[in-house]
Amino acid sequence: MHRSGAAMAWNVFKFCTALRGLGSIMILVVLGVVGVTYYSVVVTSYGPALLGGGVGALIALAVLVLFHGLLVMLLWSYFSVVFTDPGSVPPNWRPSIDEERGESDPLTLPDSSGLQSDPSNPRIRYCRKCDHFKPPRCHHCSVCGRCVLKMDHHCVWVVNCVGALNYKYFLLFLFYTFLETSVVTLALLPHFIAFFTDGDIPDTPGTLATTFLSFVLNLAFSLSVFGFLILHMSLVAANTTTIEAYEKKTTTKWHFDLGRKRNFEQVFGTDKLYWFIPAYLEEDKKRIPCLNGLDYPVRPEFDSEAF
């Protein structure tokens, strides 16, 4: 039994290592898709149309301006997710409940039944893998090998965990990816239809193949990202994460649900000018503690409970 458990642990470790390696490849895949799309839309399709003059040139200009604007926002959001730490537990962090109870009631570790994740239970949460206390809504990521503040999931596409400090950037990445791929799909639709016509097509076989590939890829990404975006916006509306949504599936009331407006502000902040860019207003960081990943307001009826 001991050997079997050790083998399982080793297999899990190799799987997590493989995921980390896969993530680096996925960044190249993303950049590859962007490159192929750019070639199809700008170099072979709408770039040359600018020289034709007339209505066609105006349409091409509008498509290119929209395409480049969305591309900038997409890449800005994407690399913000990649390079922003989702949030780590500060060294020597201790739950505030210790201060409320005083030195006469020292912190005790949870029992051997496992880690506590249900906020309705006031037991102190502790990560045995990292050997430190866990703040509210914090979870351990086996791929990253550490605890992540308000962890949503580990995303191989960004080689990073999605957590408290980069969740907004991840959502904006989904949003701009959906808009960009939708624009590309519509822009390349006439060329895609022409691919199946019987008439003479002036483009070379290589150009046609690239345009066909770009159309299919962007259509697939548009449909898949749209579903993923709807899922995460529903999570934002309820002020929960993917992990928490699974854990609280039998819970009738969610402690952190403050109403849709306040739930939205817990992720995007209060300044509307910053809602659509991967950045936060400094005043929001001071005014909304949860943006720092450690303190989260709860519904009024649960204010007296400890988490």
Rank of each mutant, 00 (worst) to 15 (best):
S80T: 13
V82T: 02
V82R: 02
T84M: 10
T84D: 11
P86Y: 06
P86M: 08
G87T: 10
G87E: 10
G87W: 04
V89N: 07
N92T: 06
N92L: 10
N92S: 14
P95K: 09
I97L: 12
E99H: 12
E100K: 14
G102P: 12
D105M: 12
P106L: 07
L109E: 11
L109T: 10
L109K: 15
D111Q: 02
S113W: 03
S113D: 15
G114V: 06
L115I: 11
Q116A: 11
Q116C: 14
S117A: 13
S117F: 01
P119G: 08
P119D: 08
S120E: 12
S120W: 09
N121R: 07
R125S: 09
Y126W: 13
Y126N: 15
Y126T: 13
C127F: 02
C127N: 03
R128Y: 06
R128M: 06
K129I: 14
D131A: 03
D131P: 00
D131F: 00
H132G: 01
K134C: 06
P135R: 07
P135I: 08
C141F: 08
C141I: 13
V143H: 02
V143A: 12
C144G: 07
G145K: 05
R146T: 13
C147Q: 09
V148Y: 01
V148G: 12
K150C: 10
K150W: 05
H153D: 12
H153M: 12
H153T: 10
C155S: 10
C155V: 08
V156N: 11
V158R: 04
V159S: 15
N160Y: 03
N160C: 08
C161Y: 04
C161M: 13
V162T: 12
G163E: 01
G163I: 04
A164D: 05
L165S: 00
L165D: 00
L165K: 13
Y167L: 04
Y169V: 13
L172V: 04
F173L: 10
L174F: 00
L174S: 01
L174A: 02
F175S: 14
F175Y: 09
Y176T: 10
T177H: 05
T177K: 04
F178S: 13
E180T: 15
E180L: 15
V183S: 13
V184A: 08
T185P: 02
L186N: 08
L189N: 06
P190L: 05
H191C: 03
H191P: 02
I193A: 12
I193E: 05
I193W: 01
A194L: 06
A194Y: 01
F195G: 04
F196M: 07
F196H: 08
T197G: 09
T197S: 15
D198H: 01
G199H: 12
D200A: 11
D200M: 07
I201P: 00
I201H: 06
D203T: 11
T204W: 01
P205E: 10
P205K: 08
G206I: 11
G206L: 13
L208K: 14
T210A: 15
L213S: 14
F215N: 09
F215I: 08
N218I: 06
N218R: 10
A220T: 15
F221T: 13
F221R: 04
F221Y: 11
